[in-house]
Amino acid sequence: MFRAFIILFAFLFAAPVFAQEESTSALAHLLAGEYEDARALAEPLAEKGDADAQHLLGYLYENGLGVETDLQRAVDLYAKAALAGQLDAQFALGELALKGKGVKQDAATAAGWYRLAARQGHARAQLRLGVMHLQGEGVDLDKARGVKFLMDAADAGEAEAQRDLAIAYLGGDGVAKNYLKAADWFAKAADGGDALASYNLGLLLQSGSLGEPDLNASAERMSDAAEAGFAPAMTALGLLVHGGAKAEGEPADWFERAAKAGDPQGRFLYAVALTQGDGRDEDPDAAKLLVEDLLADPAVDPALKEQAKKLRRELP
């Protein structure tokens, strides 16, 4: 399960009383993209021991925002804030250790920092620990405990945790397999803006695992994922429309969008549309280019390549 991360901020909760207004202003400048102003306000507060300001300043140095990137400076600032109990700094140190960014890569060390943040209710730290226990990475393999961490994060509204919990129910990984619960958690994550959850829910709705397949409901979820830029959902939506589902656009429109977004199956189906003049004027030359790109791509699934070879033989 691949995860992109977002550093969350909770600067106000632990700030000393004398610094609350300044910390709030520094955060406001950061969120507005006014990084130099954020640094100017945060630096004197950090020197006085304000843990929230130390975390904010560490974030600026980690990401080179308004300053030159300085990972060692970021680690030092995060460490001071983390030892003072600042949960976002604890999480940030876990992220750095997990990826080996500025520090030695060490999953066990990452888990230790995540654990400190998770005890304070940090949802993304709970998410990380859930995944680590499910995979036995840096911690004991304990699927039930992993699901418990995911549940805590999901209940807190963390969309990625909701999606991962749905996947656990889908595969019976640490919990009893339950398609209805999987669909429920996918829906929560999708409603929170998770495109991959929308895509997976769309697949479930058309699979028959939840009862009678509902192609229109599936198309609605696929449309959400497609509009969010998830290329496989564009291909899936084109196939649903081709099968009679109601959605905006024609199948060839979605195949073309998927092809431009780099989805291999979308490229193949758009080549088919151009070959047959299905939703587009016939254009065998353009179809040939798409097929040859597929055949030259080592990452394309072998079965799809075989289909592409067959189509190539049919082209002039």
Rank of each mutant, 00 (worst) to 15 (best):
L45K: 11
L45P: 06
L45I: 02
A46T: 03
A46N: 07
D50W: 09
D50P: 04
D50R: 07
D50L: 00
A51G: 08
Q54M: 00
Q54A: 05
Q54H: 05
Q54C: 02
L56A: 04
L56D: 00
L56Q: 02
G58T: 00
G58H: 07
G58R: 07
Y59M: 11
L60N: 01
Y61Q: 03
Y61R: 04
N63C: 06
N63H: 15
G64M: 07
L65H: 08
G66S: 00
G66V: 03
G66M: 00
Q72M: 08
Q72R: 14
A74D: 02
L77C: 01
A79T: 14
A79V: 11
A79S: 15
K80N: 07
A82T: 00
L83N: 14
A84L: 03
G85I: 00
D88Y: 01
F91N: 14
F91I: 05
A92R: 04
L93V: 07
G94N: 10
G94D: 06
E95W: 14
L96Q: 10
A97R: 13
K99L: 15
G100P: 06
G100W: 09
K101W: 15
K101I: 15
G102S: 03
Q105I: 03
D106A: 11
D106I: 09
A107M: 12
A107W: 10
A108V: 12
A110C: 12
A110I: 05
W113K: 04
W113R: 05
W113A: 05
R115P: 05
L116Y: 11
A117N: 04
A118F: 03
G121I: 00
